[in-house]
């Protein structure tokens, strides 16, 4: 099988993720999937914007009452940095340096986990401090759905990285797993793209009023 073929850093092709036909198909298919995901998140954003601050009575907390800039800022920095670390991982993948790629991916996973921890803290905080829950108002439903969908994507991305790392720990790079690593990192960047809009539209604009 030439998919399992051994390479050296000198024979390793320039775009290992697109060298085989399978790789090319996966690469394109995944980009198309991201196109669909764009519309999926747009629908969620649209729903959130239509239902923002729509609460049954005046004693419910609104966006401007709840959101806190420092927390969002830390989360943003964590996710942005994890985007850079996964770029580093792909840089080493293209240079056929498996060990360094693994290291950077593990750092990425760590940052992702930290982000997730803050998100759980944040949700918990809103529920207990402001009684802002999934069922308390239309605003609550749409907020937790939008941000929660993003959080679920983070979980999937982390699970994907971990599965790939576990499966390939002792195998090194080949043309069969290189596209998989590449796509997982594309997915991770896309998660970051969505977060850029979440922190801008939900948090920053929510803070302005």
């Amino acid at each position: 099988m030439d998919a399992e073929q051994k390479f050296t850093s000198r024979t390793w092709p320039e775009s290992p993720e697109k060298t085989t036909l399978e790789g090319k198909n996966k690469f394109l298919g995944f980009w198309l999937f991201l196109g669909g995901e764009t519309v999926l998140f747009a629908s969620l954003f649209a729903t959130y914007l239509a239902l923002k601050d729509k609460v049954p009575s005046d004693d419910h907390a609104l966006a401007i009452d709840m959101f806190e800039l420092p927390l969002v800022f830390i989360m943003t920095m964590l996710l942005l940095t994890s985007s850079l670390t996964s770029v580093y991982a792909m840089y080493h993948m293209k240079n056929y340096n498996f060990q360094k790629m693994k290291t950077w991916l593990i750092i990425t996973v760590g940052l992702g986990l930290a982000f997730l921890g803050f998100e759980i803290y944040e949700f918990n905080h809103y529920v207990h401090e402001y009684h802002h829950t999934f069922t308390s108002s239309a605003f609550g439903s749409s907020f937790y759905t939008l941000v929660g969908f993003h959080g679920a994507h983070v979980v999937v991305g982390l699970g994907w990285f971990l599965l790939l790392l576990i499966r390939n720990t002792n195998r090194g790079l080949n043309l069969y797993n290189a596209p998989k690593f590449f796509l997982a990192s594309l997915y991770w960047h896309f998660i970051d793209v969505v977060w850029v809009f979440i922190f801008t539209v939900v948090y920053l604009m929510g803070m302005v009023g």
Partner: peptide
Amino acid sequence: LFDRMFGANFFDVSMGGN
């Protein structure tokens, strides 16, 4: 699904839904 099965309020006008 969330409205019917998990108590969300997207479409419940009395809870701010639309």
